[in-house]
Simulated assay, not measured.
Amino acid sequence: MATLFVGLGRMGAPMVRRYAGTTATVLFDVDTAIARALADDIAARPLDSLAELPDDVDTVILMLPNSRIVESVLEADGLLDRLPGGALVIDMGSSEPTSTRRLAEAARERGIGYVDAPVSGGVAKAVTGQLSIMVGGEVADASRARPHLAPMGATILDVGPSGAGHAAKALNNLLSATNIAAAAEVLAVASSFGIDPGVMVAVLNASTGRSQATEVKYPKYVVTGCYDSGFAMDLMLKDVAIAQSLARGEGLQTPVTDAAAEAAGNARATLARDDLDHTELARYYEYINQVSFRATGA
C-alpha cells in the first residue's frame, strides 16, 4: 500500500524526503512541476490530479497552509470520497481546531481515520527529521499514525482528541511570538543603556530569562540582522489568531499574550511586506524604538 503526500512547500518537501525512504509514496502539489521534479529525485510517484487517486493509496498526509485549503482538498476536490474504508488521513499543517473536528467526524462517517499532527521546529528540523509533532485524534487512529510520523519527528506527543494537536500548535506559536516580543523589549532597553545586544542575549541565555527565542532565534536571525528563519510572519499571525480564538471561546483573560499578538499585528502593518519572516517582529521593535539589535562584529 502507498501514502499520498499533499503539499510540497518549504516544510512539505523536506518532510517527504525523510518519509519516502520508509514508505511507497505518491506526491501531489498544485504546482505539478514541483511534484514531478521531487518525485524523480526521491523515487516517488507524481500525481497530476487528485481525481486520479491510485488504487493502492490507503494513507494521506497533508502539509497545507490552512484549513480552507484542507477543506478544499478533502471535500470540494472529493478526496475523502475517493479513499477506501479503513484509510487514514493525517493533517500535519496548522489548521483550525473546529474545522479539524468537523472533518474528523466526516471522515469517521466514511469509515476513515483522521489525525491532526501539526509540527514545530521549522525547516531546519524538517530537514533533519527532528520535528516535534503534536497528535490529536482517537487513540486507535493516533497509534496507526505513529509509524508514519516517526521518520519526520524526534518528539511525538499525543495531546488529546481531534483538534487538540492543532490547538496545541497554535498555543505554542502564541507563546513563541510572546517570547520574541518580550525579548525585543528587553533588548531595546539594554541597547539604549549601552549593553551590546549580543552580550545581552548571552546574559539571558545564561540566566532565568532564556527561552527558545533567545537561545535560537535571536543568535541566528536577529543579532546577525539576517531575519531569515524560514517561517513567515503571516503564518505566525494565523496561528496566533487561532490561539486567541480558543481563549475567547473559553472566556479566558489573556492580557500578556494579547499584547504580544497586537504587537505582531502592528509589526505586519508597519513593516508592510508580504515576505516578512516571523523573527522580524524583533525588527519592528528596532524600528519603533530607533535602536539596533545587531551584535558587535555581526
Results as ranks from 00 to 15, higher is better:
D81C: 07
P65Y: 13
K238N: 05
G85W: 07
G78I: 12
M236A: 12
A184R: 09
G198D: 14
G9P: 01
K238A: 06
A154N: 14
N66L: 12
V199W: 03
E71L: 15
T128G: 09
L171K: 04
T178D: 06
V73F: 14
V201N: 02
L38N: 04
A190F: 05
L79N: 06
F28W: 11
M11P: 02
V73A: 02
I195Y: 02
V186R: 04
G297Y: 04
M233G: 11
G153W: 11
L271G: 07
I156F: 12
L149C: 05
P14Q: 02
T279D: 10
E138V: 12
P84V: 03
R210A: 14
Q212K: 13
R82I: 02
V119P: 07
A272E: 13
M236T: 11
G230N: 00
A104N: 14
L38T: 03
L50P: 06
G129W: 01
L50H: 05
A164G: 12
D234R: 09
T257M: 07
F28M: 11
V159G: 02
E280A: 01
S94K: 11
A272W: 11
D41R: 00
T59I: 06
E71S: 12
D141E: 06
G209P: 02
N266I: 08
L171N: 06
L246E: 00
V201M: 01
L271E: 13
A206W: 15
T100A: 03
T279W: 08
G297N: 00
Y227L: 08
T224I: 05
Y287L: 13
S72F: 03
N266R: 15
R10A: 09
A117T: 08
A213L: 06
S132T: 15
S72L: 03
M236Q: 14
T128Q: 09
Y19E: 09
G165D: 01
M236Y: 11
Q212M: 14
L157E: 02
P65K: 05
T270F: 10
A168V: 14
M15V: 13
K169H: 10
L175N: 07
Y287T: 08
S72N: 06
T254C: 14
D239L: 01
D196Y: 14
V159S: 05
G194K: 04
L4I: 10
L47E: 06
A260F: 09
V291D: 10
V203S: 08
I61P: 01
L80N: 11
A182I: 04
T270I: 12
A104H: 15
A267R: 06
P147F: 03
E109R: 06
L204E: 08
S143R: 08
L62K: 09
A272F: 14
L271N: 08
G85F: 10
A44S: 09
R144L: 12
V256G: 05
G122M: 01
P147H: 05
V127A: 13
D275V: 09
A282M: 13
G113N: 07
T279H: 09
Y218P: 02
D29P: 03
L174V: 05
T98L: 15
E52N: 11
P161T: 09
K220A: 04
S162P: 06
R248A: 03
T208I: 01
D196F: 12
G113R: 12
D274P: 04
S162T: 10
A37E: 04
F293D: 04
